[in-house]
Design a protein around this nucleic acid. Structure first.
Lengths: 336, 336
DNA sequence: TAAAAATGTGTTACCGTTAACATAGGGAGT
DNA sequence: ACTCCCTATGTTAACGGTAACACATTTTTA
């Protein structure tokens, strides 16, 4: 592989001038710039990352921590990831994924080593659950970190206002004339699930509607659990006229279950989701849902972590960026 | 962060002796070793990865490429990954995950840069599909690579014998007295799916049993597709007495569908899976399946890639390691 | 007991890049 | 014409480690 000296030798310029061209510094003549650029191309040169890291004392790479549960509810996570990747692509930063829960990733010492060895400069964490042990490590060691999809105290976060978004969904249903509304809830130890469930009951209370615990379906943010437990409700209980699912995957699981029992959507029951994953518009009927700008959240988080890393996280005050949500009206909710 | 010179200064030994202790070289006195080891601990020293990479011209890291489909069929992939991680943990190598299909990962140039910049030393790829574009790049550039869960020509692979494993499953069903057997097939462009389907028809032919195309259910290796399409078969067709699913996730999707139509397993229909994922033993009835030693496959692949990277892949001849499979008898198949 | 080998330790150069400083030449201002 | 400053370029010294070699000192071998 070609090095900076090869370019230097080939063009007759010193390595420093070559370095300047590569780094787009100024004070380089147009002539030098051209000649060196050509040589870079001809020799197919790319800067040696290790050498750069060594001298810069920075790795120019961001670690993305995901937990196993995320991998399961994959659309959600993939969309965010895409936003992160494409934003980072425009900067000088690389991305490394770490799957946590596996015994040897994200352990306290591992995490610190990554930072200390200048292996990575900062972390992005997608929707950690409430009691995630490594979050404490991240916090006490002041490691540059941005969280996506959860509003963790003391951290930089990119999140939606779950309360507001849930009110949006429920009041939409109410406006459509629904008075009996059920909830398909997410994983119990996740912030988003907790906040949405809380907002759900608050909203119903506020509008003086009955809160019927029978209509709380455990979905764990998963397709299968939502499906199975919806079936159970159908077979053993009575149905509300509308259902609010804390994510789209569960909404879809529920819809499939309803269909398999010949229950029409939205004819017999309406359903609204949360997220607006790709699948939402592809299923029958297309799913009405609360859109989270997942892709943009990924982008925003990427920008923020780069900012933190560049300015030094110690100097900046933690802040949480709240993204807007909106109802995407499709065909799974009908007016009563 | 402490460096090797800090240790040197603190202990009075030269940096070279310190380096020797850190790398467990011999020709170091017990006294020096102890004194330095203590200082290492006291100063919480860890070697700077960038400096090492620079001088060694190696990154000591392996890239794991997974495609988005893998993320979906997550148990399979996670088990393999765990094997990889835990094996690599015992060596001096790090692991970086790359999710392909995202536009900016695994593109030709990106892949080459990773290698050229000494950012990673070699790749591990989990079950790439037949026409995966980056496999060509990997091959033509002679990049150290090991494939898991597919037998790609010209590559180092760790795989099972899908033909043999499928025969095992089908002949098990036949031995139990089944004569009408259906297939839940996987994603069409994946080697494992293709091989298992081929073996399925061959085995039926060999035993003079009818091959009924109506009983071929498309499952795409996914829970939901298998579920939906099983429902379709139940509602619109007749059922065989047994079903062979090309992976467990589909078997489970199918079982859930059957159950929701009050069809008893194994009473009314038997079903056998493939993989032996964790969920297999947890569902009702516990799933009889062909066990793939996924964890061990991950381990074996990790060992192999390290071997390739250390000895230089040019010198070694490609080989595919075949792991054994076995039937795990549980309760989803009954004797007719 | 002298020569050879093994052991423990240090010195130096280098990996590829960038930061900081140095220098030479050309224009502008007075 | 003389200083002053800007522009383009080069030189040197790091960054933190390892390899190769050198050199005592001790141990083994003949």
């Amino acid at each position: 592989m070609a090095t900076i000296s090869d370019i230097s030798r080939k063009t007759g310029y010193s390595i420093m001038t070559v370095s300047r061209v590569i780094n787009n510094s100024k004070n380089v003549s147009e002539k030098a710039r051209k000649s060196i650029a050509k040589a870079v191309k001809d020799l197919n040169y790319t800067p040696n990352a290790a050498a750069r890291r060594l001298v810069k004392q920075k790795s120019q790479t961001i670690g993305l921590i995901i937990t196993y549960e995320q991998i399961f509810s994959s659309y959600y996570f993939l969309t965010i990831m895409k936003g992160i990747e494409e934003k980072l692509e425009k900067t000088d930063y690389n991305l490394i994924m770490y799957a946590s829960n596996s015994p040897n990733v994200a352990s306290e010492s591992k995490l610190l080593n990554l930072i200390n060895q200048k292996f990575i400069d900062g972390f992005l964490v997608i929707a950690p659950s409430k009691d995630e042990f490594f979050m404490k490590t991240l916090h006490t060691n002041k490691i540059p970190t941005v969280i996506i999809g959860a509003s963790y105290p003391f951290f930089n976060c990119v999140d939606v206002d779950n309360n507001k978004a849930t009110f949006l969904a429920i009041e939409y249903l109410i406006k459509k004339g629904h008075k009996s509304i059920g909830l398909i809830r997410g994983t119990k130890n996740r912030y988003d699930a907790i906040e949405r469930e809380k907002a759900f009951t608050e909203c119903l209370e506020k509008h003086g509607l009955e809160i019927n615990r029978m209509w709380f379906i455990d979905g764990h943010f998963e397709y299968r659990q939502a499906h199975l437990n919806t079936l159970k409700l159908i077979d053993e209980g009575t149905l509300p006229t509308a259902l609010f699912a804390a994510n789209d995957l569960m909404a879809i699981g529920s819809i499939d279950a309803l269909h398999s029992r010949s229950i029409k959507i939205p004819g017999d029951i309406s359903i609204i989701g949360f997220d607006d994953i790709d699948l939402a518009k592809l299923i029958q009927p297309p799913l009405t849902t609360v859109k989270q700008p997942l892709y943009n959240m990924g982008e925003a988080a990427a920008s923020r972590i780069v900012e933190l890393v560049e300015t030094g996280s110690k100097k900046t005050v933690s802040q949480t960026i709240r993204m807007d949500t909106e109802i995407v009206e499709r065909e799974s909710v009908r007016k009563l």
